[in-house]
């Protein structure tokens, strides 16, 4: 067994809710409660849950956009949340993210090539950024000349390809995909899922795949973690969780994902 690429240990994150009354203390929402998981290189972990399950908060902590109140995120053995701001910025090239909304994750005023090259500029990559931008575009199935276009010239599926190109341009080891196919039409969704699998095979990426749709997760994940109200309900190899769900809630999700 290889050492884990990413290890999340007992992650807990609490938010203070806005006070509803001057007389009562602000109540606390535990968005993520004592959640642990590991991802190995070349492996996909699916985190399944609905709005309020804490799955997006998990993604934000793994991406070090926010710090856990308890627990730690070890990336290649290094605790991300104990790094200095400067060290963290350098480390960021190794873990990248694809967002849900392909219309919101690209700056509308910047050419696509500019956006894709941004992570390289941020860390001062030497060499030919233009060539690597073209390569990234071709890796996601788009022609290199698309670098000179603006985001509004692309469809939702194409934009998601661009977002993926941008995420892999720094040759990361881990990709976090937060509802990355949820906003897409079914026929386009399958294309993007296949693209993620192709890239994983080619680049040996570990993927943290977050979704509310158990069917989508089933198609791409090796391991599954089901979350509800911030708590991990069950986890294990995908086939096992899908074939014999231990929890009633997982069964509901399976029913919603729909076998007919």
């Amino acid at each position: 067994m290889t050492a884990p690429l990413l290890e999340a240990r007992n992650l807990t994150r609490r938010y203070k809710l806005p006070r509803t009354s001057l007389l009562h203390a602000a109540s606390i929402l535990t968005a993520v409660d004592n959640t642990s998981f590991t991802i190995r290189a070349g492996e996909t972990l699916g985190v399944v849950g609905e709005s309020g399950s804490g799955k997006s908060t998990v993604a934000r902590m793994v991406m070090a956009f926010e710090a856990p109140d308890a627990g730690e995120v070890l990336f290649q053995g290094q605790n991300l949340h104990s790094l200095s701001a400067a060290d963290l910025r350098v480390q960021r090239q190794k873990f990248q993210m694809v967002f849900q909304d392909p219309f919101g994750s690209l700056d509308p005023r910047r050419k696509v090539g500019w956006s894709i090259a941004e992570p390289m500029r941020a860390i001062g990559v030497d060499g030919d950024t233009a060539r690597r931008t073209s390569e990234a575009l071709e890796q996601v199935g788009l022609p290199a000349r698309d670098a000179d276009k603006y985001p509004h010239e692309f469809s939702g599926g194409q934009r998601q390809r661009i977002a993926i190109a941008r995420a892999i341009v720094t040759r990361p080891a881990l990709l976090v995909a937060d509802e990355a196919v949820s906003a897409l039409d079914v026929s386009v969704q399958a294309q993007i899922l296949n693209l993620l699998m192709d890239l994983q095979d080619d680049l040996g990426l570990g993927i943290l795949f977050i979704s509310h749709d158990l069917a989508v997760v089933a198609s791409i994940c090796d391991q599954i973690l089901v979350m509800q109200h911030g708590k991990p309900l069950e986890s294990g190899p995908a086939a096992q969780v899908l074939r014999s769900p231990a929890h009633g809630y997982t069964q509901t999700l399976l029913k919603a994902a729909g076998v007919f």
Binding site: V186, S187, Q189, A190, L193, D213, L214, A215, V216, A218, S219, I220, C221, D222, A238, A239, L242, L254, A257, V259
Partner: peptide
């Protein structure tokens, strides 16, 4: 194109 949750990945 619809993923089938019962098919192994």
């Amino acid at each position: 194109a619809r993923p089938d949750p019962t098919a192994p990945a």
